[in-house]
Computed example of a mutant assay.
Amino acid sequence: MFVRTASERDLAAVRALLVETWHATYDAIYGAKRVTEITDDWHSIASLKARLTRPNSEFLVADDGKRLGGMAFAATTTTTDPKIVLLNQLYVHPACQRQGIGQSLLDEVEASFPEMDILRLEVEEANAVAIAFYEANGFRQAGRTADCGGNSGLPALIMEKGRR
């Protein structure tokens, strides 16, 4: 798989990847109905399309020429301060996990923001696989939020990685 910038023609495949990955990861935590509600909102084509043109952001896909194996989206927290970058999404299709795709996406996110001092993310506390991945990549717990993504009402851990 090679990592490249996403385009509008990728959006249906990105949505399908996100829906499948979210159900595989979160059905046991939130229930299938709630996961469908979240993916219909957060991962709609309209929501994904808006990310393509967001300033100071990077929308990436991992592609083998036949299918997408993963995706990532990150953006500076403000348009005026490139020092803090929020990793909003990093997902690898369940059939493609543990093949280095997540690592490749994370490496490209970091390379895309040369002025960044802190890479921050929010992760569901029950998602032990994701937490272990981030800890193995230098992230440490920096706090908690009661509202993951700023509009979900779902609690999450906040993790950060400094680059100095």
Score class of each variant (00 low, 15 high):
Met1Gln: 06
Phe2Lys: 13
Arg4His: 07
Thr5Asn: 15
Ser7Lys: 11
Arg9Gly: 13
Leu17Ala: 05
Leu18Gln: 10
Leu18Val: 11
Val19Trp: 02
Val19Cys: 01
Thr21Leu: 10
Thr21Asn: 09
His23Thr: 07
His23Ile: 05
Ala24Gly: 10
Asp27Lys: 08
Ala28Thr: 11
Ala28Gln: 08
Ile29Ala: 04
Tyr30His: 12
Arg34Glu: 07
Arg34Lys: 14
Val35Phe: 05
Thr36Trp: 01
Ile38Val: 10
Ile38Tyr: 08
Asp40Ala: 14
His43Leu: 08
Ser44Glu: 11
Ser44Tyr: 08
Ala46Asn: 12
Ser47Thr: 03
Leu48Arg: 06
Lys49Arg: 15
Ala50Val: 08
Arg51Val: 02
Arg51Ile: 02
Thr53Asn: 14
Pro55Gln: 13
Pro55Ser: 11
Pro55Cys: 10
Asn56Ala: 12
Ser57Trp: 08
Ser57Lys: 04
Ser57Val: 06
Ser57Thr: 06
Phe59Glu: 04
Leu60Asn: 01
Ala62Trp: 00
Asp63His: 04
Gly65His: 07
Gly65Glu: 12
Gly65Asp: 07
Arg67Gly: 15
Phe73Pro: 05
Phe73Asn: 01
Ala74Gln: 01
Ala75Arg: 09
Thr76Ser: 12
Thr77Val: 15
Pro82Cys: 04
Lys83Glu: 12
Val85Lys: 01
Leu86Tyr: 09
Leu90Met: 06
Pro94Gln: 09
Ala95Gln: 11
Gln97Lys: 11
Gly100Val: 10
Gly100Glu: 10
Gly100Arg: 13
Gly100Thr: 14
Gly100Tyr: 10
Ile101Pro: 05
Ile101Gly: 08
Ser104His: 06
Leu105Ile: 01
Leu105Pro: 03
Leu106Asn: 01
Asp107Thr: 15
Ser112Tyr: 10
Ser112Phe: 09
Phe113Ser: 09
Glu115Cys: 13
Arg120Ile: 06
Leu121Cys: 05
Leu121Ser: 07
Glu124Trp: 05
Glu125Thr: 06
Ala128Leu: 11
Val129Arg: 13
Ala130Leu: 03
Phe133Thr: 00
Phe133Leu: 05
Glu135Gln: 11
Ala136Pro: 04
Asn137Cys: 14
Gly138Asp: 10
Gly138Thr: 09
Phe139Ile: 00
Gln141Ala: 11
Ala142Arg: 04
Thr145Glu: 08
Asp147Gln: 01
Asn151His: 15
Leu154Gln: 12
Ala156Lys: 11
Ala156Asn: 07
Leu157Ile: 06
Met159Trp: 00
Gly162Thr: 07
Gly162Leu: 02
Arg163Cys: 00
Arg164Pro: 09
